[in-house]
Design a protein around this nucleic acid. Structure first.
Lengths: 102, 102
DNA sequence: CAGAATCCTTCGCGATACTG
DNA sequence: CAGTATCGCGAAGGATTCTG
């Protein structure tokens, strides 16, 4: 039971897994991520990115003096989350069939 | 992306997956579930159980006129969530090692 | 572009007490 | 036992504006 609780705590909120998924799909810039996730605001995105960075799930790299080229990449530790994402995505499809569509 | 969002929406909050996990471990009565999840309150549990029922993830069965024998069981549709739970639990262990312990 | 600042509203959730 | 009823706080999140 406890490991699940640990995981849920690190991934709390409705955004973190989506952000990780987005980055893993090749969106590495702030605006790219923002555009890839419908309805997220820049404020929330900034905050979630910090959380993820603190939890060592992503890495922030500033490769430009003017900070216009900040990039976010997954840490190895987040790579292992892909199994979760896959399972979640598979279930999401089933769920949509079962509930949302009729 | 969207299926993940669907899944996250159905499983929102920090309790639903824990509840499903608990039921899958054999806790079928209200009090059993409550006791198995540290820190959850009866109010929150009642509300989450309703949500899960509405989403057809669990089934509520009253087998006594005085409602003292209510039981909660997983719907087939929730069984497919076990892959998510397994992935999450595996990752939770890693995460604990990586972050929480030093 | 990549955010920070501010203001404001909603909501998850806890605490406590009560009911059939 | 299996919940319901109230109260209330703090955090999450939306909208908008601003900055280097």
């Amino acid at each position: 039971m406890m490991p699940i609780q640990d995981a849920l705590e690190a991934l709390n909120g409705k955004w973190k897994l989506l952000i990780i998924s987005s980055i893993s799909l090749g969106n590495n810039r702030f605006k790219e991520i923002e555009r890839s996730i419908p309805k997220i605001s820049s404020k929330v995105l900034a905050k979630e990115l910090k959380d993820l960075e603190n939890n060592k799930l992503i890495k922030r790299t500033i490769s430009d003096y003017s900070s216009v080229l900040t990039e976010y990449t997954l840490q190895p530790h987040a790579e292992t989350l892909k199994d979760v994402l896959i399972a979640l995505r598979d279930w999401g499809k089933l769920h949509r069939k079962a509930i949302i569509d009729k």
